[in-house]
Structures are given as structure tokens and as C-alpha cells.
């Protein structure tokens, strides 16, 4: 049990998906201008990440490994994720229109979110068991949400201050992200 706990903390804080593994930078920079959209994006990413991790893990162990088709991994995973995102959007639209109204606009963006494919690949490359895979994906999703929400709060504050012309928007955002990453480095050594 404590092993799984450590895996979760490691994925969420120590090796944070955005701030230390550099996955999912595009949504991290793109939708972090307000806390509200940041929350919505985090929820959508967490949802898709869980489903896609489970599906790709099953495909890897049920199809790719027994048939020695490892070289098709990238193609199959990216297709599965693209199809899943479509499917989730259609199901959401039919069954929970309210959820779709709040998360719907983020879903198309998720297909090219490298955090989703990245986690699917890390899951199978690290030879995680089914339970470890679930815990790792949960931790990663939590880490993504935490980083995104914290960062959007910082950017909301920055938007009120006078930043020199050449640093406005992107440059100051990256430098702020660097300082946030520095803070997250404090977590390393937490998990042994």
C-alpha cells in the first residue's frame, strides 16, 4: 500500500508532469489565463487521461505484446486517443449536456496534448501493473491539475502588474513557470 502511495506522490509532486517532465506545456500555457478555464481543462484532462491509460494498457498487453507488434505502439496509441476523445465528446453531449457545455471546448485540444500520450507510453515502458498504472495516471492527472490551477492563479495576479513591453505575455509566463518549477523541486527527496 505504501508503495502505491509513494507512486502517487511521486507522479503528482516530485516528477510533476508539467514542471519536471515537460509534458502538456501547450495547454499549460494556453488555458492558464483564468482559474476557471484552468479548472475545466484539468478536469477534462484527468477524465481522458484515465480512460486512455486503461484502454492503451489493455491493448498493449492483450494485442501488441503477444503478437510482437511493439513497433506499431505509437500509431495505435495515438489513434486510440483520438478516437476516445471523439467518443467521450459524443457520449458527453448525449448524456450530460451540462458537463459537455463546460468541458466540451477543451476536448478537441486534448488530442494533441502530449501528456495523455506521454502517460500512456510511460505506463507500458515502466512495466506498471494494472493497479500501478491506475495510481500513476491518477497521480499524474492530479499533478497536472495542481500545476495548472496554481499557475493560472499566478498569471491572474501578473495581469494586474506592469510588465516591461518585451516580457509581456509569453516570456513572463515562462519565467514564472520556472519559479514554480523551482518550488516543486523542493519536493524531490520526499519519495525514496
Amino acid at each position: 500500500m505504501s508503495g502505491l502511495m509513494l507512486l502517487f506522490v511521486g507522479a503528482a509532486l516530485v516528477n510533476n508532469v508539467v514542471l519536471s517532465r515537460f509534458l502538456g506545456i501547450c495547454p499549460f500555457m494556453g488555458v492558464s489565463k483564468s482559474s476557471e478555464t484552468a479548472l475545466g481543462m484539468s478536469a477534462a484532462v484527468a477524465f481522458v487521461m484515465m480512460i486512455s491509460s486503461v484502454v492503451t494498457w489493455i491493448i498493449e498487453y492483450a494485442v501488441l505484446r503477444p503478437w510482437e507488434l511493439g513497433y506499431l505502439q505509437t500509431v495505435v496509441f495515438v489513434l486510440v486517443i483520438a478516437a476516445l476523445v471523439q467518443l467521450v465528446e459524443m457520449v458527453m453531449e448525449k448524456t450530460t449536456p451540462e458537463l459537455h457545455a463546460s468541458l466540451g471546448i477543451f476536448l478537441p485540444l486534448i488530442t494533441t496534448n502530449c501528456a495523455i500520450l506521454g502517460v500512456a507510453l510511460i505506463n507500458v515502458q515502466s512495466d506498471y501493473s494494472f493497479i500501478e498504472m491506475i495510481v500513476f495516471s491518477l497521480g499524474t492527472a492530479a499533478g497536472f491539475g495542481l500545476a495548472l490551477v496554481l499557475f493560472s492563479g499566478l498569471r491572474e495576479r501578473i495581469s494586474f502588474s506592469s510588465v516591461p513591453e518585451i516580457f509581456r505575455d509569453a516570456p513572463i509566463a515562462f519565467i514564472t513557470a520556472g519559479i514554480l518549477a523551482l518550488a516543486f523541486m523542493g519536493f524531490s527527496g520526499l519519495v525514496r
Binding site: 509569453a170 516570456p171 515562462f174 519565467i175 513557470a177 520556472g178 523551482l182
Partner: peptide, 21 residues
Amino acid sequence: LAVLPPGAFVFLGFMMAFTRF
């Protein structure tokens, strides 16, 4: 620190500002 994760963000930020300048 420059080759650790925070360095990546900070260096890219400054390089973007530099190209703008």
C-alpha cells in the same frame, strides 16, 4: 540550475524576450 527543469522555463522566457527586442 540551468540544466534542471526550472532553468528550461527561465531561459526560454528570456530568449523569447530577447528575440522580441
